[in-house]
Design a protein around this nucleic acid. Structure first.
Length: 583
RNA sequence: CGGAGUGUAGCGCAGUCUGGUAGCGCACCUGGUUUGGGACCAGGGGGUCGAAGGUUCGAGUCCUUUCACUCCGACCA
């Protein structure tokens, strides 16, 4: 009894016949991802509306397990758990300026007194508010506070089951420091902590350089679980450990093996109806590398302000929109049609960076710096310029390139390739982006008032369930990893009407409970095949089949990963499972 | 928001064109036979056909309106 009390809340034991596990033969037709299908078919979750899910007993167990791993590692790393109000007064959001800016994902509503509230999609404001009220001195720093809490984002298009719901469970952490240096130390600490978390959960992942996006800040890294169904494109090096989201990936500047054009004097060249890079390439017998591609976009800013921007890069490269957007500090870049271009005095197909009409902003890719003898649109119908020497060009440069597979790694020169990833974690160096507007300050060693230097760190906890299944499944069902699985072992009683099988299975069940092994016993009055199908669908790591050979003292262990069966003596069961399941 | 599509039993679907008693498979309940790979026999329960309005002797089916959901694009843990 005493033993049981000690493990209260940690040990999962259950009878299949008593547990609510509504397994289904067919998945709802709208499920596209395997994780979505299996989580529903195996009775882990239930859909209740667009982007809204109920967690059934099995799903809740997995969710708790994942939560525990996250919590244990964070606490070990010196973080402290808090729990902030889910409903938050809009006033804080107005103060930070995000009430207007955040957009429609922010669910707003009023209480009976007509006061504005929001459902927290993230908690920077709330956490800064908490800390600014309680921390006054550098002596109280650093501080890393987190919570594991339901978030609500009214996504325009929720999809893929738990992968992108509107309501989801997220761990969000915020750290507060007296200076940049200490914040960077904690950032590294979190990178290592996150790596430990995902490793414990049995995930194959990469830490990659990322774009900071809307949250802002100087440096950020994403934790990507590698899976074909991932929504993000990740650039990784085949030789070293470099990895980056395509939005932030860099490369060694490209070199062209094709012959460079002979140097000459800058001149206008008649190019009738030749508008595309490959047509120009053919016309001039020149590699696209030596042609300047000019991409026009409309940049949108706060308050409905907009302007036309030209992005110039080599004909052999592609524009990376996120980089381009960041380079002009816009909220968004949108395509622009030919009519609008003409109104602005630009000629589609013949745009270039020289001789431009008024009011057009230009950003040139870094790799065009000092490039000699380039071909470029003349901003005049049917004409291009040749022998444009970029040494003479004085304008803004930035990194605009979308790294391609086969490009060279900036770190080691190795070959870069694409892979797909599921973003399960994101850590940011925030700086004073929130502490300043919210006037959250402390007194430093010299008695001077300073804004907190902050970091922010997120993990998509409910998304992790989907990520685990995306990476660990076969055509029969789920394969939970040891730290995430609801039970370590499932005892399958082949024929429950057979007293000998039943008694021995019950004995093993009780023995495992005694020994603290999470165990589910399938004691339903069903046929063998039926139970095996459920076992495979649910994905508990080890099955223990108590069947006909029990009369000889023999049972079978099934490894869910390989589906290999192995006959063993009933007396060795506990010992073998202990070793295999690490319990 | 733009484009495409779907709403019929818990799940998967047929029926809608051409109006005439609401159907199939799985699941569920009862009894029996079965028990090493989603068994079989017999019997049974379950539906405001997404909602509202209209046409008609009669609407799941035709007309109008509306809601929800899903898929493809922009957002994100």
């Amino acid at each position: 009894m005493c033993k049981d009390t000690k493990r209260a809340g940690r040990l999962n034991i259950m009878r299949f016949s008593k547990m609510l596990i509504p397994t289904l033969k067919e998945a709802p037709s709208d499920a596209v991802l395997v994780s979505h299908k299996y989580l529903i078919r195996a009775g882990f979750i239930q859909s209740v509306g667009s982007g809204l899910y109920n967690f059934l007993p099995l799903g809740k167990m997995v969710l708790d397990n994942v939560k525990n791993v996250v919590k244990e590692e964070l606490d070990k790393a010196g973080c402290q758990e808090v729990d902030l109000a889910f409903v938050t007064p809009a006033s804080l959001w107005i103060e930070s300026g995000r009430f207007e800016k955040y957009g429609k994902e922010l669910l707003r509503f009023k209480d009976r007194k007509d006061n504005d509230f929001v459902l927290g999609p993230t908690h920077e404001e709330m956490m800064v508010n908490l800390v600014r009220q309680t921390v006054k001195s550098y002596k109280q720093l650093p501080l890393n506070l987190y919570q594991i809490k339901t978030k609500f984002r009214d996504e325009i298009r929720p999809r893929f089951g738990l992968m992108r719901g509107r309501e989801f469970l997220m761990k969000d952490g915020y750290s507060f420091h007296k200076d940049e240096e200490d914040m960077k130390r904690e950032f590294d600490n979190m990178e290592q902590t996150y790596s430990r978390i995902f490793k414990r959960l049995g995930l194959d992942f990469r830490v990659v350089e990322a774009d900071s996006g809307a949250i802002g800040g100087s440096g950020s890294k994403e934790f990507m679980v590698l899976a074909d169904s991932g929504e993000d494109t990740v650039v990784v090096c085949e030789e070293c450990d470099y990895g980056a989201n395509i939005e932030a990936a860099i490369r060694k500047p490209a070199i062209c093996e094709a012959e460079a054009p002979e140097e000459g004097i800058k001149a206008k060249f008649h190019t009738p109806d030749i508008t595309k890079i490959d047509e120009l390439s053919e016309f001039f017998h020149l590699d696209p590398y030596y042609i300047i591609k000019t991409v026009a976009k409309k940049a949108l800013y706060d308050g409905g302000e907009e302007k036309i921007v030209l992005f110039a890069l080599r004909g052999s490269d592609e524009l990376q929109e996120t980089k381009a957007c960041n380079s002009v500090n816009a909220n968004e870049l949108i395509d622009i049609d030919d009519e609008e271009l003409q109104e602005a005095g630009l000629i589609p197909g013949f745009m270039g960076i020289l001789n431009l009409p008024e009011g057009i902003e230009v950003v040139v890719d870094n790799e065009l710096k000092k490039a000699p003898c380039m071909v470029c649109g003349a901003n005049e119908k049917d004409y291009h310029l040749v022998n444009v020497n970029m040494i003479e060009y004085e304008g803004r440069y930035d990194d605009l390139i979308a790294v391609q597979e086969g490009d060279r790694c900036a770190k080691c020169g190795g070959r870069l390739k694409y892979t797909k990833g599921i973003e399960v974690g994101h850590i940011f160096q925030l700086g004073t982006r929130y502490s300043e507007p919210l006037n959250a300050t402390f007194l430093d060693e010299n008695g001077k008032s300073k804004p907190f230097v902050m970091g922010t760190y997120g993990i998509g906890v409910s998304r992790l369930l989907a990520a685990i299944i995306e990476q660990h499944h076969d055509d029969k069902g789920c394969k939970w990893t040891m730290q995430s699985t609801p039970f370590k072992v499932e005892i399958i009683v082949s024929n429950i009407s057979d007293e000998l099988q039943k008694q021995n299975a019950e004995k093993l069940y009780n023995q495992m409970i005694e020994d603290g092994i999470d165990v589910l016993i399938d004691d339903r009055k069903e046929r063998f095949g039926f139970k095996m199908k459920d076992f495979e669908l649910i994905g508990i790591p080890y099955g223990l089949i108590v069947g006909k050979k029990i009369s000889d003292g023999i049972v079978e262990i099934v490894d869910r990963d390989t589906l290999q069966k192995e006959e063993i003596n009933i007396n060795d069961v506990i010992e073998i499972l202990r070793v295999r399941a690490g319990v």
